[in-house]
Design a protein around this nucleic acid. Structure first.
Lengths: 332, 332
DNA sequence: TTGTAAGCGTTATCAC
DNA sequence: GTGATAACGCTTACAA
C-alpha cells in the first residue's frame, strides 16, 4: 500500500509538501503541485484515514442508533440522516439495536473510544454512562422519541397534538368507545400520545375507560394480540387507534379473524404512514410524519453541538399530517 | 481525556507496563497489575481505539452494503451479521445504498482508506475499482445475490431450485398460465429464478409465454404495476409468482382492485417470507430463507478471507423452505 | 515556497 | 518483570 512517503519520493519533494498539496493546493507552486499530483495518481495514493483521524482527533463519523431498521418510517429517517451527513462530510455508522440496551451501549461507546464523534438516537434511552459527560455537552441528539433526562437536543413531532387530531377524526365519525393500542409504558412518546387521546375524549365529553388502553411494542404481532384483548373486552370499542402502522396491520388481521369487517364493524387507524400503510386492505388511515426531515434536522443539531455552534434551536418540532384512507369509517 | 501516559504516571509504572497489563495481564506481576488496574479505574481510562487501530493497521470494522434496510428479510440478515461479527470482535458499519452505486462506492472506499477491513455485499455489484485488488484477495463477500465477476466468496440460496419448487406448487394446483413478476433484468438472482420457473414449466410440458414475465424492482409499487400489466394481457394468468413478498403484496392489491379475488380467481405467491407475509390478506405463500444464517455465514467467510484462512468453503448454499399459506389455491 | 521535525496514543522490540 | 524507545502515517509549527 502506498503511503505519503512513497509519493514524496516519487515526486522528489518532502512529505510535508505532499500533504499541503492535497489539503491546500493553493499554497504550493503550480510546478510542484503538478509533480505531486502526478505522483499521487501514479502511486494510486489514498490517504490513510485511520492516520488522519488519529492525528486530527476526529473521525467525522456519526453513530445512529435505530430500534428496528426494518420499519420503513425509520428507514426514511435514516435516508435523511445519510443525505445530510454526506453533505457535511460525515459518514454514518448505523446500528440496529433491536431494543437491546447492551447493543446501544456498545455502539455508543464508539464515541468514548473515539471511533465516532457523536450519536443520533431514534429512541428514548441514554446510552452513555451517567457521569461521563457531566461537564461538557453530551455529543448526542434525540430524534423521533424524546428523552427526559439528561437534556439533549431533540427533533420531534407534537405527538400530543397528532394523537388528538387522529382521535378527533374518529370522534367525528361518531365513535365514542375508542380503543388505543399504545407503545411501551415507560416511553415518553406514548405518554404524550395518550395525553392527546385523552384531550380529544375530554373535549368531546367522553369518559376515559382505562380498559380500552392496551400496551404493545410496535410490532404487528403485538398489535394482533392487543386487538384480541380489546375485542374480548366487555363493551368492545368501535374504533382502535394504534400507535404505529405495524401494530394497526396486526390489529386489522385480528379483527378480520374475528369475522368482523374494517371499517364496517370496527375502524382502525395507525401512525407513521409506512409504505405498507397504503397496501394494507383496507388502506390505513394514519398520521404522516416528515421522516426525512427528522433525519436532516437531527444531523444539523448534532453537528452544531459537535462543532460548538449551539446558537441553533435546541428543540425542533416538525409538522404532521392526518392521512385519511379506507380503514376508518362511520360508527355502525 | 485520559491517556495511557496519565495512567502510567498515576500507577508509577511505564506506559509499556500499562499496555501489557491490559493486553496480557498474566505477564505482569500481581502487585503491579493491581496498581495499574486501580490507576485505570481512577483515571476512567479507555484506550483510544483510533490509536490502537492506527498502530495495528486494522479496524475490526466490517462494512455491510444493503440495498434497502426497510425489508424485513434484509433486516434479519443484518441481525445475523451483527451477532456473528460481535462474537468475533468486529463492529458493523451498515450502509443503506438504496441502489445508488455512488453510495456503494463511497462506503466501499472505507476499506481502501482503512476505515474498515472488509465488505459484505447484499447485492450483485462490485463497488471496488476494477484493478484495485488485482493481485490480492478482494476483502469482500457476497450474500443473497451472487456476483459473476470478479469471483468472491458467496453465500446464497439455490434460487433455481427454489423457484422451481414454488412453480411446481402452482402447477400442482392446476395452474397452466403462470405469470412471473421478476427482479431487474441484469440481476443474476433473477436469471436463476427465471431458469427455475422455466424448468418447472418444461417438466410439466407447458410452453413458455414471454408475455407472462414482467420485470419489477422488488418494491410493492412495482408489484402493483406489474400485476396490472399481467391482468391486461391477453390470456391472463391464473397464478402469479412474485420474486419478493413486497411485490406480491403490491400484486395482491392490484388483483383485488380489479375486482378479482385471491386465491379464488388468481393465486399469488411471494419469496423471502418477510414479517408482513403472514399479515397480508390472504397470507402469502412464499419461499422462506434462513436469513440470519446468511448473515452469520457471510461474516465467517469474510473474516476467513481477511485473516488469510481460506481453507473454508468459498461458496455456501443455504436451504430454503416452501411455506404454503392462503394466497395460493386451485385453479378456478 | 519548501523542508525539518515534533507529536498524536498505542504496541512491540529490545535491553536490563 | 519492567522500562526505554522506535514505529505506525499524517499534519503543522517553525526554520530555511
Amino acid at each position: 500500500m502506498s503511503n505519503i512517503r512513497k509519493v514524496a519520493e516519487l515526486a522528489g519533494v518532502s512529505v510535508a509538501t505532499v500533504s499541503r498539496t492535497l489539503k491546500s493546493p493553493d499554497i504550493v507552486s503550480p510546478r510542484t503541485r503538478a509533480r505531486v499530483l502526478a505522483a499521487v495518481s501514479e502511486a494510486d495514493y489514498k490517504p490513510n484515514l485511520m492516520a488522519v483521524q488519529f492525528r486530527s482527533r476526529r473521525t467525522r463519523n456519526l453513530v445512529v442508533l435505530v430500534p428496528t431498521i426494518s420499519n420503513t418510517f425509520f428507514a426514511r429517517v435514516i435516508g435523511g440522516i445519510q443525505q445530510a451527513a454526506q453533505q457535511q462530510g460525515y459518514s454514518v455508522l448505523l446500528c440496529n439495536t433491536l431494543g437491546r440496551e447492551d447493543a446501544e451501549r456498545g455502539y455508543a461507546s464508539m464515541v468514548t473510544t473515539r471511533q465516532a464523534d457523536g450519536v443520533i438516537q431514534l429512541r428514548a434511552y441514554n446510552p452513555f454512562a451517567a457521569d461521563a459527560y457531566a461537564d461538557t455537552a453530551l455529543p448526542m441528539v434525540n430524534a423521533c422519541e424524546v428523552l427526559d433526562s439528561p437534556p439533549c437536543p431533540t427533533v420531534k413531532l407534537d405527538n400530543r397534538a397528532a394523537a388528538r387530531t387522529l382521535t378527533e377524526h374518529l370522534i367525528d365519525l361518531g365513535h365514542r368507545r375508542i380503543g388505543m393500542i399504545k407503545g411501551p409504558r415507560r416511553s415518553p412518546l406514548t405518554r404524550d400520545r395518550v395525553a392527546g387521546y385523552c384531550d380529544a375524549l375530554e373535549a368531546a365529553g367522553i369518559a376515559l375507560d382505562e380498559r380500552l388502553l392496551c400496551p404493545g411494542d410496535f410490532t404487528p404481532h403485538s398489535g394482533f394480540n392487543a386487538a384480541g384483548m380489546l375485542l374480548a373486552c366487555d363493551g368492545r370499542p368501535s374504533a382502535i387507534f394504534c400507535e404505529s402502522d405495524e401494530m394497526a396491520i396486526g390489529a386489522i388481521k385480528r379483527v378480520k379473524q374475528a369475522g368482523l369487517s374494517v371499517p364496517g364493524d370496527i375502524s382502525v387507524a395507525g401512525f407513521d404512514d409506512i409504505t405498507f400503510a397504503s397496501f394494507s386492505d383496507p388502506p390505513l388511515t394514519t398520521i404522516a410524519q416528515p421522516a426525512e426531515a427528522f433525519g436532516r434536522q437531527a444531523v444539523s443539531l448534532l453537528i452544531d453541538t459537535l462543532e460548538g455552534r449551539c446558537e441553533s434551536p435546541r428543540h425542533v418540532i416538525l409538522p404532521f399530517e392526518l392521512v385519511v384512507r379506507g380503514s376508518t369509517g362511520s360508527k355502525p
